[in-house]
């Protein structure tokens, strides 16, 4: 099957008047014709197969939202090409709109003053969803997202978690082939996050919907995505599986010991002390150089232990390290 989303050397440059500091600077800005160009997205090339669920990850200002906006067709690329389900989004905004669903964590597409269900009816009309399919979809969503209790409540009175569930349902009512989720779980509590992750997984698996998820919450990605694309300063720095990046960067483990008696410097051969807090000691070690069973044996010989555990690195700590150090094929071990 051909890719459903394809971008080639996609680039977006924003032009803004050059700003100068201070009051005099502000006045000069008002009259000057000098501009500065900021490259938000630099030569992004990616391909997504139908039915993929990809995490699109990067720090603030990395170019995630700019990419998503270009994919939806509301932003025209400065150069490069995009094809979404065979269409160039910015040339065929309306047709493209029928293929896609969008959820922004920070903005709602629901109608503020109206009961939730009336926003759904409006969307049914906008996308000309056949009545029976609309009813089936809505019924399914109400059950999955437990929306029954607040279906008739005006949107402005909903809690953030309720509103987000409404927004998710709103984005999926017209059975879009592709869904863009931009920071969808921001500010949600654990229960709401879990409900939404479950919903995303369901939509992806049952309907085969292609999904791009941008998020800061790497737990979302770890739970949902097999593939991630990492972007930093507008450039893609990694495109591959979560497992691969974990294997590559996950050469370090953490050994956590709880000592019966606090010890000022409980050294272990082959591991370095990360922290030592009243007997709770965290060691970092390279699993290729030191073996955990030997470390534990050594620890039991030297100290009296109440508890022992070994932690694997999570995606979050790996990504944090990549942002700081940059991505290299063979990470240098520190």
């Amino acid at each position: 099957m051909p890719p459903i989303i394809r971008t080639h050397d996609l680039r977006k440059t924003f032009r803004s008047p050059k700003r100068r500091p201070g009051v005099a600077g502000a006045l000069r800005t008002l009259f000057s014709r000098e501009y500065e160009d900021k490259v938000a997205v630099r030569d992004v090339t990616m391909e997504l197969e139908p039915g993929e669920l990809v995490g699109y990850i990067g720090p603030n200002g990395a170019g995630k939202s700019t990419t998503i906006k270009m994919l939806t067709g509301i932003l025209v690329p400065t150069s490069g090409t995009i094809e979404v389900a065979g269409l160039v989004p910015s040339d065929r905004r309306n047709e493209n709109a029928r293929n896609i669903g969008v959820v922004f964590g920070q903005r709602s597409q629901l109608y503020w003053d109206l009961p939730l269900v009336e926003s759904f009816e409006l969307l049914r009309a906008i996308y000309s969803v056949p009545k029976d399919r609309y009813r089936a979809n809505l019924q399914g969503f109400i059950e999955m997202l437990e929306m029954e209790p607040f279906l008739r409540t005006p949107v402005r009175q909903l809690s953030l978690g309720q509103r987000m569930r409404g927004d998710f349902a709103a984005a999926m009512l017209h059975n879009p082939r592709i869904v863009y989720l931009d920071e969808p779980t921001i500010g949600l509590d654990v229960v709401a996050k879990e409900a939404i992750r479950e919903f995303v997984r369901h939509i992806n698996q049952e309907r085969g919907t292609t999904i791009i998820l941008t998020t800061h919450d790497l737990a979302d990605v770890e739970r949902l995505c097999r593939r991630i694309i990492l972007i930093d300063k507008g450039t893609i720095i990694y495109d591959g599986t979560v497992e691969h990046i974990k294997e590559q960067y996950g050469t370090h483990r953490t050994l956590v010991l709880t000592l019966t008696e606090p010890h000022p410097n409980p050294i272990l051969e082959g591991a370095e002390i990360e922290s030592n807090d009243r007997g709770l000691v965290r060691y970092r070690f390279d699993r290729r150089r030191a073996r955990p069973d030997q470390l534990i044996r050594e620890a039991t010989q030297r100290y009296e232990l109440r508890d022992v555990s070994i932690e694997e690195p999570d995606l979050e700590s790996i990504i944090r390290r990549i942002y700081v150090e940059g991505y290299t094929q063979e990470p240098v071990n520190s």
């Binding site: 906006k69 939806t72 509301i74 309306n94 709109a97 029928r98 896609i100 969008v102 903005r107 906008i126």
Partner: peptide, 13 residues
Amino acid sequence: REGTIATDLMKPI
């Protein structure tokens, strides 16, 4: 002002 015009532009209308 609220930046929601983008949401409308993403609809087939």
